[in-house]
Nucleic acid binder design. Structure first.
Lengths: 225, 225
DNA sequence: CTCGTTTTGTTCTCCCGTTCACAAACTCCT
DNA sequence: AGGAGTTTGTGAACGGGAGAACAAAACGAG
């Protein structure tokens, strides 16, 4: 109930309220859509316009935004710049996030070169690889170092987020080392289920799983056609 | 009720029943876990063991498997090989799936080289890129061709699945061309919302969105600490 | 100032997915 | 053959998210 929270002296914009996971997962999409609108010179947009740009239902969009606070104006819409900043702040991408990437195969290189990271506050402070043959190579302006430097680098830069782009067999070891030296968020591209302590967040991206899901639906289409 | 379906003459294994999306998304994980168990020489496993290997709750695992049919034995567990085959068949990875990849940057190359595709029935029949400079390069044993060859290749090989690994600005055009020549499933790595006809399935993988979600939680940890 | 129009913020309802808990079914041992 | 122990398959309760629908708020015209 709206009243209950009002009585406590907190507004609905209080950012200590926790936001549903499903909403958190969509905020970066809204952020991207707003950035695009901003670049096109749009100063104001309605929930309907933004919803179309983000590929979601407008009611869902409004509900999502309402978890952050009341940043719109009824009868008018949202100020693109203002809303963009509010979402960025809520997600945390107004900060600087030092990141280490372990495993410099094609995927690791793709990640190191990805401009979408830098533009959102993620700064690749180190590229690490166990293979000495890759040592001293420079990728995306960052020198490839020995994996054993992990602890020192994490300590020096205050790294909280690690990216694993190694083969599956190495991934658990890398994760263990990361956890041991204080990393609390891991983005895992290796096709394996990592086991880590509860307080560590792991998100996984598995390229082949996505294709398999498509294959399932494709097979269904073929069967019913 | 178990009896009700028996009365209709259909067994619970009837594969024309449609499987919940959430379950479909987990089947590839089970498949991978079973493959690992099989390689380790495990002949039989309980739902609990498999659940641990897949990183899910055992009750959820059993319910997921029950949508496929009754492939377990009470008091014993599941035959690893048999269950693995049943899941593979249900997903469709016992078939051969020709795939085209468009955009041969680092990411495209990583995809082309990814062994997890080939081992699950996905065969990269063509690598396409708009940049003439990349033409005739050979990546993962496949020659890079002009994007304009798309229609012919899709026709020749009966390609149903396309992968987009281009920069964002090119992605919508690529998607349109894919749809026009009959591709009905698209895996999109470009950070943009694609618009396609309803009957076309699109799954997106956005590297920076995953990092942003981690950043959000990381920020929360820091705030409450 | 008042009325009509637009668009947000929120409530309400429905549906999907998760989890618990247990009966049914199978094995093994005596 | 029978009973003890194990594990599956599923009914039922629960929680969270999606979408429709509406009241509240802002703006503009007259």
């Amino acid at each position: 109930m709206e009243k209950a929270t009002a009585v406590t002296g907190r507004t609905s914009a209080d950012s200590s309220r926790d936001i549903p996971e499903a909403t958190v997962a969509r905020l970066p999409i809204y952020l991207r859509a707003l950035t695009t609108l901003s670049e096109q010179g749009t100063g104001t947009c309605s929930s309907e316009e933004l919803a179309v740009a983000a590929g979601v239902n407008s009611a869902k969009l409004r509900k999502d935004l309402s978890y952050l606070g009341s940043y719109g104006t009824r009868g008018v819409g949202y100020d693109v710049e203002y809303l963009r900043y509010q979402i960025a702040r809520e997600i945390g991408v107004t900060q600087d996030w030092p990141v280490v990437i372990v495993g410099i195969g094609n995927l690791g290189q793709a990640l190191a070169n990805y401009s979408g990271f830098r533009s959102r506050g993620f700064r690749v402070v180190a590229l690490l690889d166990a293979d000495p043959a890759r040592r001293d190579e420079v990728v995306a302006g960052v020198e490839v170092q020995a994996f054993d430097n992990l602890e020192q680098i994490v300590g020096d830069h205050g790294v909280a987020i690690g990216v694993i782009a190694t083969p599956a067999v190495a991934a658990q070891d890398v994760a263990d080392r990361m956890v041991a030296c204080g990393i609390t968020s891991i983005l895992n591209f290796a096709p394996i289920v990592l086991s880590v302590p509860d307080q560590v967040d792991v998100r996984k991206v598995d390229l082949s799983i996505e294709l398999q899901i498509l294959a399932y639906h494709e097979q269904r289409k073929a069967a019913t056609a």
